[in-house]
Every structure is written in C-alpha cells, then in structure tokens.
Amino acid sequence: MRELALHILDIAENSISANADEIKIIVEEDLGKDILRILIQDNGKGMDAETLAKITDPFITSRKTRSVGLGIPFFKAAAEACEGSFTIHSVPGKGTTVEAVFKHSHIDRMPLGNIESTLLTLLMGTPEIHWIFEYRNNESCFIFDDQPIKETLDGIPLSEPAVMRYIREMIETGIQEARLSGIMEATH
C-alpha cells in the first residue's frame, strides 16, 4: 500500500470484523518531536495472546480466517522501516488498540495520503459504528465524532446526498484547517 491512510482503512476493517461498535482513530503529526503517530482503538472482541502473536507474524499462514489481520505485518514493517515503532494491545472481550509511530522526516516514510477518503469510506460504509476521529498537527486539533450528527439526523441515513456533502466538507475543511494552523504554529 502506498499511503498510511490505506493502512488505517485496513486496520479499521479488522476492528469492524471484530464486531466493534465504537472505533477511534487518532492521527498525530508532531514536527517538534519529528513523529507521525497513528492509533486505532476499538471495543471489539479482542484477541488472546496466541492469536495476537500469529497475526503480527507474516510467516504463519495456518490461520483459517486468512483475510483478517493480513495487513498488520505490512503496517508494522512500514513503521519499523522508518525508525518508528509498532504496538498492538488486545484484551479478549474488551478490544484492540494498534499504535504505529513513524519518524516524520524519514525518507522512507509513506505519505499520510488521502485520510479524508479513508474516513468517508468508513463512515458511509459502516453507519452502525460510532466513529471518533482526531487529527492533530502540532498544537492544532480537529475532532470528529459522528454521534451528535447521527442524533440530529434521527433516522435520515448518512448516504442522503446532502448529508454526505455536509460530512465530507466538515472533514475536509477540518483537517485542512488543523494542518495549516499546526504548520503555521510550528514554523513561528
């Protein structure tokens, strides 16, 4: 995969498969610390230690549910290739948290890519899940929580064209503004 945003989509798909009904995604760019941090946290069914070990090891192919977790070794390798780190923490019955940290300035670091498109895909494609998204750029922050939107809509689907436009613009402008003001602060 060529974008970190595609990895985020892939990891979030694992959370969906784990029957999570609340998924939180955090993307943080901190130029002072020179890191890009990605966190995906769900309240799904979680995994025991054995499954966890299998899922992070690309050479174990004996698992039957081969599609779930297929992308984890790639995400881990991408972080480790740029002086970063990768951790996955899971508790059966409670949920799973995946965290990848990249050295922001590393030459091999993949671009973040189209994170807006990843979020829209997740929101529109799985409206039954409560999505929380945080984008941080240095001191600036954009937080998107779909709960108040869904409450206000009260039965009108997210896929209603005007609603879709509302959400798309909200996410696109929110991220853009946080990015711009974050970069401004960092360079002043």
């Binding site: 995969m1 595609l6 989509l9 892939d10 798909e13 599609s67 297929l70 992308g71 189209n114 498109s117 990843t118 829209l120 895909t121 529109m124 494609g125």
Partner: peptide, 16 residues
C-alpha cells in the same frame, strides 16, 4: 469489498 486485498487493489477509490 474492503478487505486487505481489495484495499490494495483500489477498493477505496472505487467506493469513493
């Protein structure tokens, strides 16, 4: 379809 293989093959752009 939005599995790992689908995503790598461009499923996000198709859905978009």
């Amino acid at each position: 379809g939005m599995g790992t293989v689908g995503i790598a093959a461009g499923a996000r752009e198709t859905l978009k």
